[in-house]
């Protein structure tokens, strides 16, 4: 079944991992010495889709953790925090749209399978 969803199932799970990282950035916008985190989606995808890669939630989590990067700040702040609020909000909105895009691909796959099963 996971093969049936193809690249989109993995992409959806990884996009959720990225949303979690970005939500932590916004949550810690006022925490001293917090380094803004982001995920290199390309390399996470490469790890998760590599031939022989394990399937399941733990493997997705490991792939996301391996692709984590500390994003440098455009404007340094006195308390050592590298979160830029506006940029973070924009990135989060973009990541939300990307999640929706992956979700609609998965959904159309599921609909196609349902049509095939019910024959209607």
């Amino acid at each position: 079944m996971s093969n049936f969803l193809g690249i989109h199932g993995t992409a959806l799970a990884l996009r959720e991992q990225r949303l979690q990282l970005l939500s932590a950035n916004i949550a810690n916008a006022d925490t001293p010495n917090f380094q803004a985190q982001d995920m290199d989606f390309n390399s996470a995808m490469r790890v998760a889709m590599a031939p022989g890669a394990a399937a399941g939630g733990d493997a997705i989590g490991a792939a996301a953790a391996a692709a984590r990067i500390a994003r440098p700040s455009g404007q340094p702040s006195l308390d050592g925090n590298t979160v830029d609020g506006d940029r973070e909000n924009a990135t989060f909105a973009q990541a939300t749209l990307e999640y929706r895009a992956s979700l609609s691909f998965v959904e159309s796959k599921v609909r196609g399978m349902l049509t095939a099963i019910t024959g209607q």
């Binding site: 979690q20 932590a24 949550a27 810690n28 006022d30 925490t31 001293p32 917090f34 996301a64 953790a65």
Partner: peptide
């Protein structure tokens, strides 16, 4: 404020 890992996962930084 300080960062606190949610559910023991360092990627999930709560406050």
């Amino acid at each position: 404020f300080s960062t606190q890992a949610v559910a023991g996962n360092p990627a999930l930084a709560g406050v």
